[in-house]
């Protein structure tokens, strides 16, 4: 299925969970937040949370900023 991850289109396997997707982007767990279609997915739910074709996913972390 095809998702939009951090603004870029990506093909991922059907059974990919949020945790699997995050692992492809960063090794960090602390300091990372995920939203699917604008809704925060709590870290405790990453392992179980599935993804659907067309989902828009944002995976964010800390950056320098005032």
């Amino acid at each position: 299925m095809r998702l939009t991850v951090n603004g870029a289109s990506r093909e991922i396997p059907e059974d990919c969970r949020v945790a699997d997707l995050v692992a492809t982007l960063t090794e960090a767990r602390r300091g990372v937040a995920v939203a699917v279609n604008g809704e925060v997915v709590p870290r405790s739910a990453w392992a179980a949370a599935g993804l659907r074709d067309g989902d828009r996913v944002e995976v964010l972390t800390a950056a320098q900023g005032g």
């Binding site: 951090n6 960090a28 937040a33 964010l60 972390t61 800390a62 950056a63 320098q64 900023g65 005032g66």
Partner: peptide, 18 residues
């Protein structure tokens, strides 16, 4: 202060240092 940015754009190392 820290900002929140996409993981692919944010450089590594900030949080561990803080």
């Amino acid at each position: 202060t820290v900002a929140l940015r996409r993981v692919d754009a944010a450089g590594p190392g900030l949080l561990p240092m803080l």
